[in-house]
Nucleic acid binder design. Structure first.
Length: 267
DNA sequence: ATGCCTTTCCCAGAAAGA
């Protein structure tokens, strides 16, 4: 079984690349982030043509998450209890959705960016991660192999950014953000490490200034797996090819191969 | 060459991303 997570930076803009990538890579389960598409516009039919059942949880212009599955989709949960909302609790953004796909349960997350440590959005980011913690803890202790995966907008360690000196005073690397992600991991989750390719663990490279081809990236797309899932990971890698060429997302997919093949795709 | 930012609103340029 192959599972993946990918921040596509607009599903409408990325649909041709996504469909091409699905046909080439043949993942069984995919968590998407930054779909930037309303649910009534979600490309359900195009994905079904490739054998994927899908659930989008979106709001149009910003944010948006989804789960695609060749193993069916059950027990779908949009959002999460305790979501702090932005700019206040009266507005909940579309940043997480969970589903069971055959033998595994997954939760796709798009953690708030934070903008800068002085910005109110940064406090929102920390509140959002705090709300995620009990949700993930409950799901991870369930009966199924489980992973919360997506764009966490946090680089867990200095090794996860191309130059720690370049990030002094910036979000994604501050102690409170890292502590919030470490809190998610505490209690049994594993931050599944992708294979190092070209000396890099990165999953994101800014579009500007040729940062991708200069190797100036960050590992902010994470797969946090419970023991039942982490124990069956055969391989994990960042699909850098998806960051190349014409019209890429600024993120590359993280792909995991699992020794969980018995269920087989749903026809 | 892995290649110099992209996407959204929608038609102008600002906001957001990280």
């Amino acid at each position: 079984m192959r599972i993946a997570t990918w921040n596509v930076n607009s599903l409408p803009a990325r649909l041709p690349r996504l469909l091409e990538w699905l046909a080439l890579t043949e993942p069984d389960v995919v968590c998407l982030q930054e779909t930037k598409i309303a649910d009534d516009a979600f490309p359900t039919a195009e994905l079904a043509d490739l054998g994927y059942e899908s659930v989008g949880h979106g709001q149009g212009q910003w944010n948006g998450v989804a789960v695609l599955s060749r193993f069916g989709l059950v027990d779908v949960v949009r959002g999460m209890p305790g979501d702090p909302g932005w700019p206040d609790g009266s507005v909940l953004e579309a940043r997480t959705v969970a589903a069971t796909c055959g033998p595994v349960r997954v939760r796709s997350v798009y953690v708030p960016n934070g903008r800068s440590p002085q910005d109110p959005h940064y406090e929102y980011k920390l509140r959002w991660l705090a709300a995620l913690r009990p949700v993930v803890a409950a799901e991870a202790s369930g009966p199924l192999p489980y992973a919360v995966m997506g764009d966490f907008n946090v680089a867990p360690t200095d090794a996860d950014v191309w130059d720690p000196a370049a990030f002094v005073g910036a979000t994604h690397v501050t102690e409170p953000e890292r502590a919030a992600v470490a809190d998610l991991v505490t209690g049994g989750l594993t931050d599944v490490q992708p294979r190092i390719v070209k000396g890099q663990p990165f999953t994101y490279w800014d579009y500007r200034a040729g940062m991708f081809h200069k190797g100036m990236g960050m590992r902010i797309d994470l797969v946090l797996a419970n023991a039942a899932l982490a124990g069956v990971v055969r391989d994990a890698w960042v699909d850098r090819d998806a960051r190349k060429g014409k019209g890429p997302s600024d993120h590359a997919p993280v792909v995991l191969d699992l020794d969980l093949d018995s269920a087989g795709p749903v026809a």
